[in-house]
Amino acid sequence: MTHEDMDPLVKLTREEYNAPPETPREEMWAVIRAGMAERTADVVPIRRARGWRAAFAGPAPGWAAAAAAVLVLGIGIGRWTSPGPGPDATLTAAAPDEDVMLAATRDHLRRTESLLTMVQSDSRTGAVDPSVGVWAGGLLTRTRLLLDANSVEDPTTRELLEDVELVLMQIVGAAHVDGDDGERTRSELTLAIQGMDDKNVLSRMQVASATGVGLAGT
């Protein structure tokens, strides 16, 4: 190929190499807007939506385990004492609008799906990457906040988020098992995967995040 051929080659590359689709402008803005609100509002901070392990890379700090434990305890108590959705006064006051919540829920499900898929594939080795615990902890917090934001009215979505929450709790638990106790980690993971499979959590999430079906009342 000669120098003269380069321009057509560049043109061809422009057409063929990672040609961008239409910008998902509104979808991204909804997530950005929610992130801006998190930073602006003086409420419990929510880890912002980010891809893969980016937001949670690195070893799990000690406080994460403690926070996860407190959260899990709180969720348990909350479920025993309150059969219906219990609005959180602080969050209700700052609740974003329906579109933002819908986008945030879809985005959250998509990210959780990435984690669950990875955990499912890693479970065969019985090992859990330390960052998974922090990642799952962040998602767990976010799941609870979505449920508590008093905006999830659709029972299908609420049920899905509650199932997701339970799976995430188990993953957080598995991730914080002593690193030398491989057998226990494997057992915790098996339980998490089993629960996930029994309730078709992954496939329900895929449908919801891809199509928005079941999120209309979010």
Partner: peptide, 22 residues
């Protein structure tokens, strides 16, 4: 998108960019 070749990553990077800018 050109850099990532993946819609999810491109969306993440774009969102992160604007949130960091904010």
């Amino acid at each position: 998108y050109r850099m990532a070749g993946n819609a999810d990553l491109a969306r993440d990077f774009t969102q992160d960019t604007f949130l960091r800018a904010w």
